[in-house]
Write a protein that binds this DNA or RNA. Structure first.
Lengths: 143, 143
DNA sequence: AACACGCCTTTCATCGTGAAAGTGAATGCG
DNA sequence: CGCATTCACTTTCACGATGAAAGGCGTGTT
């Protein structure tokens, strides 16, 4: 096993390469960092065991299946009792693709994807039951 | 080739499965949707060709490499001339992991990851050159 | 009824993967 | 100083996932 507990510079370069393209073979990564594919494989396994790598997923294009609206929502809660219900709402609503408890501006931050503004309207009505919000619509992702 | 241009329900289920775990073999996905691995492979290729699937990447844990601070930044620009410079700044600054041009609250929305609050401080100083901001710190991701 | 087309399955060769064994360097201990 | 131990890497090898090619089946068209 490679540097069994610590994460060195080579590990970070492997991580970076996989973030860019998780389908790279260990051999290809090995050419970047000057190792054999098997050595890279061992390091990747280490990164998984340490919890640095949490899983493998897709980069994809929601617009292509009709999710044209991409919005960010900062939510301000009305009361202190609504939190549990709000979290349940977030969990069950599939338009909410990411959610954080935050400090600073607002109580929660949500990423929302819906097909059109009428669906957004419906969602905002739901959110209003729990508190106020500020909305930003993504016009273009620049990074 | 499967339903060469359109995306049917099976495609969506394949997409969902891969979003959850991109390492599933085509055969395993095939068992979920009642197809052979090869048929699944053909559909995945179609999704790639159509641009629905944009690439493969990792789910990972930034905290494990010392990026303990996760912040959302809504930026309000000072002047109309600063946009190009701001976009260049965003592009070159590696603490900014995601950025959008937005409408609604603010002009830009940024996701920021840094190691500690002093690094955050430095970043905010940079941002102040372009405009004002509102900051939210992620306390816990709930989805 | 015959044909064509789309989508699937079957078959097959290739290649990536992880386990096991071996090499070499660095460190520790007598 | 020499020997053993450990650690990371390489080499070898067997398994299985993948994609190409060919064959089968249903549907729609004339």
């Amino acid at each position: 096993m490679p540097s069994s507990q610590t994460i060195d510079d080579i590990d970070k370069r492997i991580l970076q390469a996989l973030l860019d393209n998780a389908l790279l073979t260990h051999k290809e990564i090995g050419q970047l960092v000057h190792l054999t594919g098997q050595a890279v494989g061992a390091r990747v396994r280490k990164l998984q065991d340490l919890g640095v790598i949490d899983g493998y997923t897709l980069r994809w294009n929601p617009v292509s299946i009709g999710l044209n609206v991409h919005a960010f929502l900062t939510v301000f809660m009305n009361s202190n009792e609504a939190h549990r219900a709000f979290q349940a709402f977030v969990e069950s609503n599939e338009a909410v693709t990411e959610a954080h408890r935050v400090g600073g501006e607002g109580c929660y931050w949500l990423r929302v994807r819906v097909g059109d503004s009428s669906e957004l309207n419906k969602l905002l009505d739901e959110v209003l039951k729990f508190g106020n919000y500020k909305l930003s619509l993504s016009i273009e992702q620049i990074k």
